[in-house]
Write a protein that binds this DNA or RNA. Sequence first.
DNA 1: CTGAAAGCGCTTACAG
DNA 2: CTGAAAGCGCTTACAG
Lengths: 347, 347
Amino acid sequence: MTTARKTRAHRQAVTVTDIAKGCGVSRATVSLVLRGSPLVHVDTRARVEAELKRQRYVYNRAAANLRRQTSSSIALVINDLSNPFFAEFAAGVDEALGSAGYVTLLGSTGESPERQQAVLGSLVEHAPAGMILSPAERSDGPALRRLVGAGVPVLVFNRELSGADWDFLALDNQRGARLATEHLLSLGHRHIAFFGGHAESSSCQQRRLGYAEGMRAAGLEPDPAWLVECSPTRAEAAGRTAELFERAPGATAAVCYNDNVALGLMLGLGARGVRPGADFALTGFDDITEAALSTPSLTTLAVQPRECGRHAAQLLLERVHEPDAPVKRVVAPVRLVVRGSSGAPAA
Amino acid sequence: MTTARKTRAHRQAVTVTDIAKGCGVSRATVSLVLRGSPLVHVDTRARVEAELKRQRYVYNRAAANLRRQTSSSIALVINDLSNPFFAEFAAGVDEALGSAGYVTLLGSTGESPERQQAVLGSLVEHAPAGMILSPAERSDGPALRRLVGAGVPVLVFNRELSGADWDFLALDNQRGARLATEHLLSLGHRHIAFFGGHAESSSCQQRRLGYAEGMRAAGLEPDPAWLVECSPTRAEAAGRTAELFERAPGATAAVCYNDNVALGLMLGLGARGVRPGADFALTGFDDITEAALSTPSLTTLAVQPRECGRHAAQLLLERVHEPDAPVKRVVAPVRLVVRGSSGAPAA
DNA sequence: CTGAAAGCGCTTACAG
DNA sequence: CTGAAAGCGCTTACAG
């Protein structure tokens, strides 16, 4: 139990008792009217409804939930709303939950596992019907499992969490990278490198897999030397451009780990007098805002975070209604956005 | 009462009764331990705490709130999380509420007054201790007042809401525009126009006021013809560039209503062969992402939405704890960010 | 079709 | 310092 300042809720709330007294019926009848039961006589219903309106009755969902052993809230835990990807995701989640009659309890962790523990602890006390969790980096899966307990279904989003057998929704990294690779191939490229990302990260592994898949489907065996690691930042990618060409001489195109890497590579290319989009083709991943604004604009994979959010909400609600269904692992679709950075190979 | 699908909360929650039985004390004693009362003997406390841990007890805050007539949630209603300004604002609100021990109930309206009514109706049923509301455009103030009632304190953010005497937090439009004007004056400009916005909107009025103030403080009487209206979109602003120069011949600079207007004006200037930043100086408002990325980059007013959010949360909590304090109208600070678009006047 | 009674999980006077 | 009892606002068998 965390310490919390609390506050008088309503000055003097109107209750079912007030309504019952006000129109000479029992509280049970008022309750039946509130819940739309067909057992109530039409006239009685009308009288009660008039009285509800007259006294400006506000339903107390917490009390009802307590009595019925139900919940009408879902917790949404993300790292940071100031990341547009997660903000859109949250918007999608809230939209879908709202139309299903649930309210969203928000929690943010700022990528801190400690804050995440605290936030989850506090949210769980509000007895949500379920939880959508995009784990902070370096999360302790079993600890979260213990904290949340078996009563609350959880959907994990975006980042794999070991030690907890929860449903999992992630971007289709593999398919995305394959789409990018196939796009470059279709333009006539044969010498395609994969640039950026850390080989240990699961998303990098999946994207590399998609790249290799695309190459092989075109009858090309990807050269392991053409997988060039680098941190997913613009500066790092720009700095590693020389290395890319050392390891992949003759490459005419690169599938980049993400947009930041691609934008950095563009800078690096420019510094070498290579014109991105004309002399060298490249693709990103994420479709961040700058992707459409760079020169040339960046061909990339749009991840549609809002749709992801809706999807996540839907998956969680399914789990909520069917707690004993087998654990699900779902992949969210990704869409190729073709822009200027991916041109045909120079003649 | 809106229809809502609901769900079993916990399979079989551990309650104070279970704990009481488990270590041979009364439920009252368990409750006292939970709430950290000094009335409980140290040994008893230790026994109870061990039992709480052993049975993995989870506090049921809803039940406690019901009994104590308190609330530990605050509703946050905004138009759209996919607007980075509001996403940052929400992040700030959630951060501040979280550290005060409240949980954030999220609601989004998508700028639709109808959805806003529905969302508020649903949120109110969860008995929040208060509400932070950034109203949808064309909101019906009195209707919202009626819906929310007197029991729930509300802080209105960003957009004035008539017909409801609620606390109000807004950006310091006036000071921001004055800062921009003074900046241009300090560079040597004397012929400064005000471009964009609708004269009816309260934010435009305030920004114009700040502009006039700045001009007068420098001994310059602003010419009403130099206030040129236009919708705050890029296309519209670009299209009205000619009109600006017809009405304000000899202007060497413009304070623009916001960043979109300024970016549009840049386009319009370019089309006339006028180089923004070199031949003509201009400023925006908002510091949207593109402001830093345009060529030249845009001098503008950063509105620090995250700080606004924290501030909003704090103001609301003050009201929650002191319901009868006089209504507050507060202005959030704004910071001038000097970039390339504001150069000295051409010689 | 309507009412009296019990109970969801908690807290809080009130006795002892 | 601890326990028995009542009650927050609601719902739901159970009678009638």
